[in-house]
Computed example of a mutant assay.
Amino acid sequence: MTQDNNNGSDARRVDSEQIDLIDIVVQLWRGKVTIGICIIVAILVAAGYLFIAKEKWTSTAIISQPDTAQIATYSNALNILYGTTAPNVSDLQTRVVDRFNSAFSALAESLNNQEKPEKLTIEPVVKTEKVPLQITYQGQTAEGAQQQLAKYIQQVDEQIAKEIDVDLKDNIALQIDTLGDSLKTQEKVAQEQKDLRIKQIQEALKFAEQANITKPQVQQTQDVTQDTMFLLGSDALNSMIQNESTRPLVFSPAYFQTKQTLLDIQNLKIDPTTIHAYRYVMKPDLPVYRDSPKRALTLVLAVLLGGMIGAGVVLGRNAIRSYRPKQ
């Protein structure tokens, strides 16, 4: 008997739940006009938003370190300036692209801090590798985003080239001063050596005159030392003094190597337009799909939101009507 009562109670509960669901569906169907109006209003609002909302398009470019030819001027200049101590091409490629990355990051930060921020980003394609680098720019039109991204890349590239040009000119001026000082020092040392040689011959001449030696007293001149130079005789010593006075300075091979390096540096000409800090892997693309607003997604959300609001209005209104008689 108890079991039958429980079964009857469960059946009534199920029937009650089914009746409630059906009632909700019926209420919604009867209020379909209200729901439809809410959906239409939501669609109109979404359409207005789509009409006034600013479009956002993202152009993307991928760059890597420059080719050897793109930094050949820079590399050759450093080789002339520093010789064997100059960095190799691989190191220069890494340094230049790192310099480009830093300058571009600074530009992106400054653009983001403007009154009207611009979204410009640069980051490695592979997080664990320095290159290649992916650069993106978000604009209001597809063409505008593409052109502006190419403009910013060229702007930073020209900035790096000018900075390198300034650095090279500073280094050239420094090296010219250093090599010039080195040549002056070597010339001074050579002059002092010449003066010392003349003094030594003059001292030997005094001894020869005091000893009344006018003719050479030795057969082999290569055996003559500083102490025995007077044995060459006063005639020979006078002739040597005259020759030494007019004789040009004697320099070591290092002097001429220094002079050649100085001439190479003085004739060094840098053209910043031939220096580039990057190489395109992918040029700025023309975006096909805009980032926002998404028309299809916006309209779908408008329909769903309008339907939910309409259903809430219908159910709420019916609930209020059915609640008043009970009071």
Rank of each mutant, 00 (worst) to 15 (best):
Q257I: 06
S110T: 14
F51D: 10
G233E: 05
W57I: 04
T258W: 11
Y137G: 06
I201A: 04
R12N: 14
T228Y: 13
V97A: 12
A103M: 09
W57F: 11
A211S: 10
D170F: 04
Y74N: 02
R324W: 07
Q148K: 12
L304Y: 12
D170R: 12
I62Y: 03
N5Q: 13
A173T: 11
L133R: 00
W29N: 10
S239E: 15
A108W: 08
N113L: 13
Y289G: 05
I270T: 06
K199W: 09
L305M: 03
V45Y: 04
I320F: 05
Q114L: 08
K130F: 02
T225L: 06
A53Q: 15
I198M: 07
A142M: 04
V125N: 10
N88K: 06
Q210E: 12
T258K: 07
L249C: 05
S239P: 03
K283L: 07
V26I: 13
Q219C: 06
T84S: 12
V218D: 08
D291Q: 09
L232Y: 07
Q193K: 10
T246W: 04
V25M: 14
V288S: 11
G144F: 12
R13T: 14
I24R: 00
P117E: 00
T298S: 09
V303K: 02
Q222L: 14
V300I: 15
F104T: 00
R290K: 07
L149G: 03
Q210P: 02
I213D: 13
Q146L: 06
T60L: 01
L268P: 01
L168F: 12
Q242F: 05
V288N: 12
Q27G: 10
V45G: 11
W29K: 13
D264K: 14
V33I: 10
T94V: 15
R247T: 01
S239C: 02
P216V: 06
R13C: 08
I37T: 10
Q18G: 11
V218L: 02
F100L: 08
D181A: 15
K54M: 03
T225H: 05
L44Q: 05
F104C: 01
L286G: 12
D264Q: 14
T136D: 09
T221F: 06
E244A: 15
Q27E: 08
V303L: 04
Q222M: 07
S292T: 06
A208Q: 10
R197V: 03
F51K: 15
V189T: 08
V97G: 03
S16Q: 07
S292L: 06
Q222S: 15
A108K: 04
I24C: 09
K326P: 00
F51S: 14
V303G: 00
R321V: 10
A145R: 00
K54D: 12
R317A: 09
T261A: 13
L301W: 11
D20W: 01
A61C: 01
I24F: 03
K119G: 12
Q210S: 09
D285T: 04
Y152F: 04
Q148N: 08
G83W: 03
G83M: 00
P284G: 05
K162A: 11
P287L: 09
E118F: 08
E17A: 11
S252E: 14
N79T: 14
V250F: 03
